[in-house]
Every structure is written in C-alpha cells, then in structure tokens.
C-alpha cells in the first residue's frame, strides 16, 4: 500500500504524458496531468516555506546554538509573508475601481512586498552570488596549476576565452596580418566555442540524454523504486 500506490501514480502519470506525445487524442490527458503538476509545483513552494519555518522554530524553541539567527529568519519570513499575502499598501485594480484592495497587484511599486523585494531580496541575493567573483579569483591563484597536458589545455583555453571575450584580445593580436585573421584571440575564442565546446558538450549531452531516458524508464516500470524511500516509515 505504502509503496505500490505511489509507484502506480508515478507510472500512470508518466505514461500518460508519453502516450500524449504520440497519440493526438490523448493530448488532452497530457495537458491535464501537466496542469496538475504545475499547480502542485506552486504548492511545493508552500511546503518549502513550511519546512523552513518548522526547522527554524524547532531550533529557536530548543535554544540550539545559533538560535538567534533562526529567530531572525523566522521574523523575516513572517514579515514578508504577511506583507505579500495581505497585499499591504496595494490599491484596487484600476480596471475594476469598485473592487477592494484585494484585487490590486501585490508586487506593484509602493507596496510593502515590493519594498522588501527591492531593498532586501535584490541586494542580498545579488551580492551573495557576486561573492563568488572573489572566491573564483582566490581559487584560480591556489588551485589552477598546469600539472600535465590536460590541465595545460584547460588553462590555455581559459586564457583565450578570458582575453578573447574582452577588448584585451583585440588589442593584443590586432597586429596579426589578415591572412592570419583566424589566429587573433577574439576569433580563436569564437572558434573554440563553435568547435571544441560544441563537440565536448554535445557528447556530454548525448550521455546525459541516454542516462535520463534510462532512469526515467526504470522508474516508470518500477525497476527503480529508490525514490519511495525505505520500507515502513
């Protein structure tokens, strides 16, 4: 019961979509399954938020190390959620002026939710990703060594791309005559992408495609049920 029904659900949902791909009259079934999936994906956002809240509240109530940071997370979560769900600061939809503020846009300029997005979410998320620029520089200095042919190739390609995708590449090799046009760094970088990167990534892509298809088939046929977890929990 705990393992057979989920397997049947996965299998039926998957095969309906596969059949819908090949059989025109089954297209509508595939559409319905996809729509249910799309709605469920939004419910998964709630599950994610709920899980976060649960874990951090447990941490706060047990006074585990770092619980104060968890309290901050919970406060930020609650404030943003309330501002967004209550549409704080929203005005009614201008097309339906007689309606209440609930018809307004929750993320338009001037709402509290927009303010949190603009002045907290944007700087925090963008700067955290920007931090990687520093770490990639440090890692390049410490770990990027031309120990053998393979590493030298990797390093040489990185140099050509880094130079060729800025004006530095143009500046350094603009003296090359037109007959050696292809050897100018900016053109080399284009050719590396067109030829070697295409070849390498295409091979990887083919491998992943075969792997994905094999795993999908194993799941849908019930050969692989590891996604259902262990037995009796």
């Amino acid at each position: 019961m705990k393992r057979t029904i989920p397997f049947l659900i996965a299998s039926v949902a998957g095969f309906v979509l596969i059949i819908a791909y090949f059989v025109p009259f089954a297209e509508g079934w595939g559409e319905s399954v996809s729509i249910w999936f799309d709605v469920l994906a939004a419910i998964a956002f709630i599950l994610g938020g709920g899980n976060l809240l649960k874990n951090h509240l447990q941490k706060v109530s047990a006074r585990k190390p770092g619980w104060a940071y968890s309290a901050i997370t919970v406060a930020a979560f609650a404030l943003t959620l309330f501002a967004g769900l209550a549409k704080l600061g929203a005005t009614p939809n201008p097309q339906y002026p007689a309606s209440s503020a609930w018809s307004g846009a929750y993320r338009e300029t001037g709402t509290v939710f927009w303010w949190i997005y603009e002045y907290a979410f944007v700087p925090l998320t963008a700067t955290i990703f920007a931090l990687l620029a520093f770490y990639v520089a440090s890692a390049a200095f410490r770990a990027f060594r031309a120990r053998n042919t393979e590493a030298a190739l990797l390093l040489g390609t990185a140099f050509i791309i880094l130079l060729g995708r800025t004006f530095a590449g143009v500046y350094l090799t603009s003296w090359l005559p037109d007959s050696l046009y292809g050897l100018r760094i900016e053109n080399l970088s284009v050719d590396i992408m067109r030829v070697f990167v295409t070849a390498g990534n295409r091979a990887i892509m083919i491998g992943i495609a075969l792997g994905t298809a094999a795993v999908s088939l194993k799941i849908l046929l019930g050969v692989d049920r590891s996604y259902l977890g262990s037995g009796d929990e």
């Binding site: 559409e31 996809s34 999936f37 799309d38 709605v39 956002f45 339906y96 018809s103 846009a105």
Partner: peptide
C-alpha cells in the same frame, strides 16, 4: 510554476493555464 510543465501546456492551450494576465 511548473517549468517545463508550463511550456508543455501552453504549446497546445494557452488559456488552460493563463486565465488572466498579470494584472488580473
């Protein structure tokens, strides 16, 4: 929400998923 699930639906029927635009 739904990523590829959305693409799959709107390829054959836009209105099933989009009942209104972002402004309602």
């Amino acid at each position: 929400s739904g990523g590829e699930g959305v693409i799959k639906v709107i390829l054959t029927d836009l209105r099933q998923l989009y009942t209104t635009d972002a402004r309602g």
